[in-house]
Amino acid sequence: MTHPHLRVETDGPVRTLTLDHPEKRNAQTPSLWAALAEEARSLPEDVRVVVLRGAGDAFSAGIDTAMFTTSGVPGEESVAQLAAGGPRAIQRGIAGYQQGFTAWAACPAVVVAQVHGYAIGAGFQLALAADLRVAALDAWFAMRETSLGLVPDLGGTGPLVHLVGYARALEICATGRKVSAPEAHSIGLVGSLAPAADLEDATGSLVDALLAAPAPALRALKPLLRGAVGGDREGQLAREREAQTGLLQAMLGGLGA
């Protein structure tokens, strides 16, 4: 096990990564993001499909909000500690965090997010980091960062705009509202829906269909189509970091300025 809250299981060409902290609705921390990045970078060549999922009643309710408190999360860098180093330290820190999300685009396997319950903030952005999304009818998505005075900064802004368009992405992020699974499907955020009881079967059917394609063709297809999306990915990630740096410094009284 690479992280106490990340369960990794491999069944032939399929690897399943389960966020496994159900008592906190799979809240995320920097050490989890580091573990996710390492999983993506070290994926064996014979793994053709990766499934990202959450244990318990939610995919992920987002960042562990204890990181915003003075006590923080034991063993994790708090937001105040991150901000204390000044703008460059903030951006270096966020750049490291982003790897837990962006590394999945570079890995050769097709990544499927299996979403049920909440996918909020970092949870929403992890779903966006996948190539494909399957959602239970009870799932809902929300970008709550703006309501906290922040912006999404874990690689989610680019994929969201590409999937649903600028205006709808702006409205979803600015209002922080819930997007139901049926709406997510209708606007192109989610590829397929299933009743909660059938979500595993629906994901399995998609995985089987992906594995039915010849392996060399599937490996060539992912970078080919991702390259066609266009846009400057690294520039977008930098813009996320820059925007968040100013907001974090203002929130925490300019620590390290």
Rank of each mutant, 00 (worst) to 15 (best):
H3F: 01
V8Q: 10
V8F: 05
E9S: 15
T10H: 15
P13K: 14
R15L: 15
L17I: 15
P22T: 12
R25A: 09
S31C: 03
L32Q: 11
L36V: 13
R41L: 09
V47R: 05
L52N: 07
A55I: 03
A55M: 02
S60M: 00
F68C: 01
T70Y: 03
G72M: 11
V73T: 10
P74M: 04
A83T: 14
A89W: 00
A95D: 06
Q98Y: 05
Q98F: 07
C107W: 01
C107Q: 12
V111M: 06
V112D: 06
V115L: 00
L132T: 08
L132F: 06
R133V: 14
A135Y: 00
D138G: 10
A139P: 03
S147M: 11
S147K: 12
G149L: 07
V151Q: 04
L154C: 10
T157P: 05
T157M: 10
G158K: 05
A167H: 13
R168W: 05
C173V: 15
G176Y: 09
G176D: 10
A181T: 02
H185M: 01
S186G: 07
I187S: 05
I187G: 04
V190F: 00
V190T: 01
G191K: 02
A197W: 07
D198H: 13
E200L: 12
G204Q: 09
S205Q: 13
L206D: 10
D208G: 15
L210V: 15
A212N: 08
A213G: 05
A220S: 10
P223Q: 12
L224V: 08
R226W: 11
G227M: 12
E234S: 13
E240L: 09
E240W: 06
A243L: 11
L247Q: 10
L255A: 12
A257Q: 06
